[in-house]
Every structure is written in structure tokens, then in C-alpha cells.
């Protein structure tokens, strides 16, 4: 759902495997019935509808209640051939990768920074990151839109005082600066999770090992390369993967910025594009095809993460 939702496994004792009761008749099935009803009704049914609809053509006639015709892969072909759709797909993927890599890079640097400073400074930094992480995405958006507001925003005031004349500049009016603002906000709200996760991984590395390495003559870079990196690599790839999944679905951020004055047709990403197709023009066929593409992309990226969770327990 929102970007702060952490798919956290509360990984516990492995030994519970052996303790599980076998069989017990229909009890496990009964226990699962309520979950299954809700999941099938609210997720599986719309998903099936969506896959079927993605093979249909919706036009004016369908808005007046006529059944839609099956057109095979036509909607999917449009994704690749129709310039408008293709641009949105590429823009989303580009934006997603840019934000995800930037977030992990900054998060990693902040984790290293936290290790290099004293306890009090580290605590201040941690609290600041936690505050930003805790902010609901809608409140984040209102305050950032207020900061970049072209009339009285803090950003333009600060830039003007630094010698760049930015007074009255509307950052949301051009697609490039629109996405620069969007990326800044997305990175700002995602960095805390990444920084704190990597920092947690770094604390697992015992100082004795690093000390031993430096006694043996390893330079700072060598210590990072041969000792720190291999130990934090699993966490690093995990948070990168989660960021890619989360940044592909950016919706609230882009929607709010569009509402505040961006031009929707030049700033759409997958989510807002689907929203516009579905609720605006009623083109459910294309909207469904793009949605299916989005789901498939997410599943492909998520698979390694799910497998790592399964390996850990179950």
C-alpha cells in the first residue's frame, strides 16, 4: 500500500517446524476460510477480471452499456507501439531505478556516517530519520508542496538568498523540474528505512575483525571492499529490491504534485496513467493491460525477496 509498509518477517524459531501438528482433520482449513474469502473476493476476483479485460476493447459504445469485444493481444501491442503508453512505461521505469539507486546510495553513506560519529550525534541523526520515516505520505506531500510553492515557498526564498534568483519560479511547471522535485521527495521519504537497515547490518560487524584487518595492513578502502561489503551485501540487495518495487508504484507523490499544478499528460507514471485511463476516459482495456504489466514487473522483481523469506522459515 503505502511506501512505509515493511514486509517484515518476524523470523522466529526454526525448531517450530518439528512441533507442528499434523493433520487435525479439517481444522486448518476452517481457520483459513475467513482469510480466503476476503482475499479471493477483494483481490483475486478483480485480478481475474483485469486479466480478462486486458484482452478486450473499450470505447464509446461500452460506456453506454454494450459488452466489450475480445481483441486478443491488441491492448498489449499498443503498450509497445503507442508512443504515449510506451513513454509512460519507460518514464516510470527510469524514475523508479533512479530513485531506488539514489536512495540506496545515500542510505548507505548515511549508515557509514552514523558509524563514524559519536553517540549523541548518532542519536540525533537517528531520531531525525525516524521522524521523516514516520510521516504519513499525504502529510509529507502537503509540507513539501508548501516548501516548493512558487509564491511563498521556503525553497525559492533560500535559493534567492544563496544568490540564485528563483523568486516566483514554479518548479512544477516543467516536466524535468517536476520530476526532480518528485525524486527529491521520494528519496527523502525512503532513505530513513534504507539508512537504518544498513546501519543495523553494520553493527553486526565486530570492530575486532576490522581492527585485525588494519593491523594486517588493510587500507580503509580494502576493509570496506573485503570485510564490510560481503557482510552487508545481502541487506544491500534486499533494500534495493524493495525500493525498486516500492518506487515503481509511486502514485500519491506524483498525483499530489500534479494536483498542485503539474501538467498531468507530461508527468504521468504508471499509477497515475492507469488512474486517468480508467476513471477519466473509461478505457478499461488499456488500463487493465498496463496494470497487468505493472503486476508482472513487480512479481518478477519480488521473486528473489520472497524466495529469501521462504528459505529463512516456513
Amino acid at each position: 500500500m503505502s511506501a512505509i509498509s515493511p514486509p517484515a518477517p518476524a523470523g522466529r524459531s526454526r525448531s517450530s517446524d518439528r512441533r507442528r501438528r499434523k493433520g487435525s482433520g479439517s481444522l486448518p482449513a476452517l481457520l483459513l476460510v475467513p482469510s480466503l474469502i476476503i482475499l479471493l473476493g477483494a483481490l483475486a476476483y478483480p485480478m481475474v477480471w483485469q486479466v480478462i479485460t486486458s484482452f478486450q476493447k473499450f470505447g464509446l459504445a461500452q460506456q453506454f452499456g454494450q459488452g466489450a469485444d475480445f481483441v486478443g493481444l491488441e491492448n498489449y501491442r499498443r503498450i509497445v507501439t503507442d508512443g504515449e503508453v510506451w513513454v509512460v512505461v519507460l518514464r516510470s521505469i527510469g524514475f523508479c531505478l533512479f530513485c531506488a539507486f539514489t536512495t540506496v546510495l545515500i542510505g548507505g553513506l548515511l549508515a557509514l556516517l552514523m558509524r563514524g560519529v559519536g553517540t549523541v550525534t548518532r542519536a540525533i541523526l537517528q531520531v531525525a530519520l525516524l521522524l521523516a520515516w514516520a510521516m504519513p505520505v499525504v502529510a509529507t506531500m502537503t509540507v513539501w508542496i508548501w516548501i516548493v510553492d512558487w509564491r511563498r515557498g521556503l525553497l525559492n526564498w533560500a535559493l534567492t538568498h544563496l544568490g540564485v534568483d528563483a523568486s516566483g519560479h514554479n518548479w512544477l511547471a516543467s516536466p524535468t523540474s517536476f520530476f526532480a522535485v518528485a525524486a527529491a521527495i521520494v528519496v527523502w521519504m525512503s532513505v530513513p528505512f534504507v539508512a537504518l537497515s544498513i546501519s543495523a547490518a553494520l553493527t553486526q560487524i565486530s570492530p575486532e575483525v576490522l581492527e585485525a584487518a588494519s593491523l594486517d595492513g588493510a587500507t580503509g578502502i580494502q576493509r570496506v571492499r573485503y570485510i564490510v561489503m560481503p557482510l552487508v551485501a545481502p541487506v544491500l540487495s534486499l533494500v534495493l529490491l524493495l525500493q525498486i518495487v516500492w518506487d515503481l508504484r509511486v502514485f500519491t507523490q506524483v498525483k499530489f504534485l500534479q494536483d498542485a499544478g503539474g501538467f498531468a499528460n507530461q508527468t504521468d507514471v504508471l499509477g497515475t496513467f492507469i488512474y486517468r485511463l480508467g476513471t477519466g476516459s473509461g478505457d478499461f482495456g488499456t488500463a487493465s493491460a498496463v496494470s497487468v504489466l505493472m503486476l508482472v514487473l513487480t512479481l518478477l522483481v519480488s521473486w528473489p525477496y520472497v524466495r529469501s523469506l521462504l528459505k529463512e522459515s516456513v
Binding site: 500500500m1 514486509p7 507442528r20 501438528r21 499434523k22 493433520g23 487435525s24 481444522l27 486448518p28 482449513a29 481457520l31 483459513l32 482475499l39 477483494a42 483481490l43 478483480p46 485480478m47 477480471w49 483485469q50 479485460t53 518495487v245 515503481l248 508504484r249 502514485f251 504508471l270 499509477g271 492507469i274 488512474y275 485511463l277 480508467g278 476513471t279 478499461f284 488500463a287 487493465s288 496494470s291 497487468v292 505493472m294 503486476l295 513487480t298 512479481l299 519480488s302 525477496y305 520472497v306 523469506l309 521462504l310 516456513v314
Partner: peptide, 30 residues
């Protein structure tokens, strides 16, 4: 409990919770 399909159920849960709301909301709206 252990039961048939348990592992598949868990895999399905983990995959579902990765799915973006934006990839399904038009269908849910309909």
C-alpha cells in the same frame, strides 16, 4: 498445522503483499 497446499498458500501471501495497489485499483473500482 501442516496441510496440503500450506507452502503454496504462504508463497501466495508473500507475493500478494508485494503487489502494488495501483496495479489493481481500477479493477477494484469496477
Amino acid at each position: 498445522f501442516t496441510f496440503r497446499g500450506r507452502r503454496s498458500f504462504v508463497i501466495a501471501l508473500l507475493l500478494i503483499q508485494m503487489l502494488p495497489a495501483e496495479g489493481l485499483f481500477i479493477a477494484q473500482y469496477k
